[in-house]
């Protein structure tokens, strides 16, 4: 199992390199540059070019790419922001807590509400309760979260004055972002849970458990739910990954200083290092989360664990044969 995890960790490195090359190439070809924005429109082309040259922005593509990858691989250096001169990695670290707070509170809210709704809908399949919860879920998926964010602000901030409309000073400031962020994923998880549970509820072993007189609550939570968890974990993991990558819209609407707004600011000012660093961070977060999800599969489903162990052994045997 540990071998499997190590193998996956090693695989993340080429993925990140590929992402680094792709994002560098994309930014290289996007029109606009950080120097002309910094200097404003009273700067002449000649002056802009002179400063671009001094910052190495006029070097050939391969030279710039080599320099970027060299710093990244050998010094773990994502560069500094052209706008603020601050190291990108330091900025990402300083903004990570806010993004984490939003992501964690959103995903907990999502799981605490979405999974029970989905289970209830599956148990009461094709009843009014099921249809109502699925209708509400559909609505939740269809509503854009920026719109939900604005509605929440109007209700809870402007009218009721319960929560502040923007900022990140204390826990109160994260309530509305967490709700607006999780409404879509609550709906998605609820629908996914319902679908998975419906499949499992009709299985023979569930029928057998009921026939043996096992209490319904235990049948659902003890027998059905664990077997329906794999797709739910996948959806939850994906949502959490997206949230950790920075909820760009939510962070912007609520003016929270997180990874999402950092990336957005970087794109607007063509701050190449900021964009590249942020995208790399998002890719790394996703890759690590996907690994965690795969490991979680093994704990939830012994068959998958056996597969992982087997693949590790096969690798070992192949190695011996080669020798």
């Amino acid at each position: 199992m540990i071998k499997y995890i190590l193998k996956r960790i090693v695989l993340i490195i080429p993925i990140l390199l590929a992402v680094g090359i792709m994002i560098f190439t994309l930014m290289y070809f996007v029109p606009g540059d950080p120097v002309s924005i910094a200097l404003g429109n009273s700067a002449t082309q000649e002056e802009i070019e002179a400063i671009k040259t001094s910052k190495g922005l006029n070097d050939p593509y391969m030279v710039q790419l080599g320099r970027y990858l060299g710093n990244l691989v050998f010094h773990l250096d994502m560069g500094t922001s052209y706008k603020t001169n601050m190291p990108v990695s330091m900025e990402l670290l300083s903004r990570f807590p806010n993004t984490m707070k939003i992501a964690l509170s959103s995903i907990v809210l999502t799981m605490l509400i979405g999974i029970p709704i989905g289970i209830r809908a599956a148990i009461k399949a094709n009843t009014f309760e099921d249809r109502l919860s699925m209708f509400v879920s559909l609505l939740g998926t269809a509503l854009p979260n920026f719109w939900m964010a604005l509605l929440l602000i109007l209700l809870f901030s402007v009218t009721l004055k319960w929560f502040p409309s923007n900022g990140d000073k204390s826990w109160k400031y994260f309530v509305l972002p967490a709700i607006s962020n999780s409404i879509g994923s609550i709906a998605m998880i609820a629908r996914q849970t319902r679908a998975s549970m419906l499949e499992v509820i009709r299985s023979d072993y569930v029928v057998t458990a009921r026939a043996k007189g096992v209490p319904e609550r235990k049948v659902i939570l003890g027998h059905a739910l664990p077997n329906a968890l794999i797709p739910i974990i996948t959806v939850c993991g994906g949502s959490f990954g997206m949230l950790l990558g920075g909820a760009i819209i939510t962070e912007s609407v609520f003016s929270i200083s997180g990874i999402g707004t950092y990336l957005l600011t970087g794109i607007n000012s063509r701050d190449y290092n900021v964009v590249q660093g942020s995208v790399l961070y998002i890719a790394a977060t996703f890759a690590v989360l996907m690994l965690i999800i795969d490991v979680l599969y093994a704990y939830v489903d012994p068959r998958i664990k056996a597969q992982y162990v087997q693949s590790g052994r096969k690798g070992k045997e192949n190695g011996k044969k080669d020798k």
């Binding site: 604005l150 602000i153 901030s157 402007v158 004055k161 502040p164 409309s165 923007n166 912007s252 609407v253 609520f254 003016s255 200083s257 707004t261």
Partner: peptide, 14 residues
Amino acid sequence: VITEGSQRVIALEN
């Protein structure tokens, strides 16, 4: 920091 125009108005009014 408030980057959104409508949020700035709400912040003033609130």
